[in-house]
Amino acid sequence: MNDDALLRELGEELDDAGLRGSFLVRDLRSGAELAIDPDLEFPSASLVKVPLVAATLERIRTGELDGARPVLVEPGEAVVGPTGTSQFRHPARIAVEDLLYLAVALSDNTAADTLFGLTPPDRVAAMLGEWGVRGITVRHAIRELSDTVAERLDPAEKHLAQTLAIGSGTVGRGHPIPQLDVTRGSSGSARAFVDLAQALWTPSRIHPDVAARVRELMRLNLLRQRLAPEFSSDASVWSSKTGTLLNLRHEFGVVEHSDGGLFAVAALTESRVPAVSQPGAEALMARVARAMRDQLRR
């Protein structure tokens, strides 16, 4: 099957499943790529934690921050989230470098916001610009992602937040829910996040020591229900970061093959199905990304 026919077929599968997405797979050795709406912009959700961690590591490298410095994390300041310090009940002192691990490997929202307190969103955005990584906006801390209508509803009513998220967007990607409005929230496209992955995995303006640590943290990612089942094997290593917000499900990362193959993958999606749990959508995201990678690899 040729590239155009494959992409058309995959696009139809996504649409039949109620998904709209921005997909890009790039061979980091040759530069060849396949894409489905790669420049379509989405709110980035937790994907923003990767540039946050990279910017904080750069400040540690230059001596602006002490990575061993303990920071007090107070439960009363916790951000809504299912993992890490967001579930702590007691104050804890955690070193800055350990907060980096929690923010990426566990997608710990409170750890990420503690880091944003040290390296604010505008500083992260400025560093992305200095590194030549375009198309990723960083406008706010993670706390704002936790203040949606979904948090004000009982568990049995969560589908109502999904319905509102699905039915209220504008053609220009605006939305009455601020976190879903790409003109107000942190955002990016599949192309932008693949560009970031390329800057982390191949020589770029990002310092090699910083890039190496970010790669290591992404390799340690424990949230592996989305793309990982299609990219992890005994002959490959999958390093990534996920992002989830209401009807949005994202992941970007890099698969390194034992034969030397190196592919950056980004899959950013929004669902038209008003359900909180959608394992089928996550499996389809992975199959689409895998099919695109397989086509490039051939």
Rank of each mutant, 00 (worst) to 15 (best):
L7W: 04
L7Y: 05
R8Q: 15
E12L: 13
E13I: 05
D16N: 13
A17V: 12
R20D: 15
G21N: 13
D27P: 11
R29A: 14
S30F: 10
L34E: 02
A35S: 13
D37H: 14
E41F: 01
P43G: 06
S46L: 01
L47G: 00
V48C: 05
L52C: 02
V53I: 07
A54E: 09
A55C: 10
R59M: 10
R59H: 08
I60Q: 06
D66C: 12
A68C: 12
V71W: 06
V71K: 01
P75Y: 04
E77H: 07
A78L: 05
V80R: 12
S86A: 15
S86Y: 06
S86L: 05
F88L: 13
R89C: 00
I94N: 02
I94T: 09
A95F: 11
A95Q: 14
L100Y: 04
Y101D: 08
L102P: 02
A103P: 01
A103Q: 03
A105C: 03
L106E: 08
T110Q: 02
T110E: 07
D113A: 10
T114R: 14
P121T: 14
V124F: 13
A125V: 00
M127Q: 15
L128K: 06
G129R: 09
W131Q: 08
G132I: 04
G132H: 09
V133M: 07
V133F: 12
R134W: 00
G135D: 01
I136V: 03
T137E: 13
V138Q: 01
R143L: 14
L145C: 04
S146R: 02
E151V: 15
R152N: 01
L153P: 09
D154H: 04
D154W: 07
P155I: 05
P155V: 12
A156T: 13
K158G: 01
K158I: 03
H159W: 11
H159M: 00
L160K: 09
A165W: 04
I166D: 03
I166M: 01
G167M: 07
R173T: 09
G174F: 01
G174C: 08
P176A: 02
P176Y: 04
I177C: 00
Q179E: 15
V182W: 02
T183N: 01
R184I: 09
S187H: 09
R191H: 02
A192Y: 01
F193K: 05
Q198G: 11
W201S: 08
P203S: 14
P208E: 12
D209M: 14
A211Y: 05
A211K: 04
A212D: 14
E216T: 14
L217D: 07
L217M: 07
R219M: 12
R219D: 08
L220Y: 06
N221V: 11
N221F: 10
L223K: 09
A228P: 06
E230N: 10
E230V: 00
S233A: 14
S233I: 02
D234M: 10
S239Y: 11
S239E: 02
K241P: 10
T242I: 10
G243D: 06
N247A: 09
E251T: 03
V254I: 09
S258L: 11
A266F: 06
R272W: 09
A275E: 15
Q278D: 04
A281D: 13
A281K: 06
L284P: 10
M285W: 13
A286V: 06
A289R: 03
R290N: 03
R293C: 11
R293T: 11
D294K: 09
Q295W: 07
L296V: 08
R298A: 14
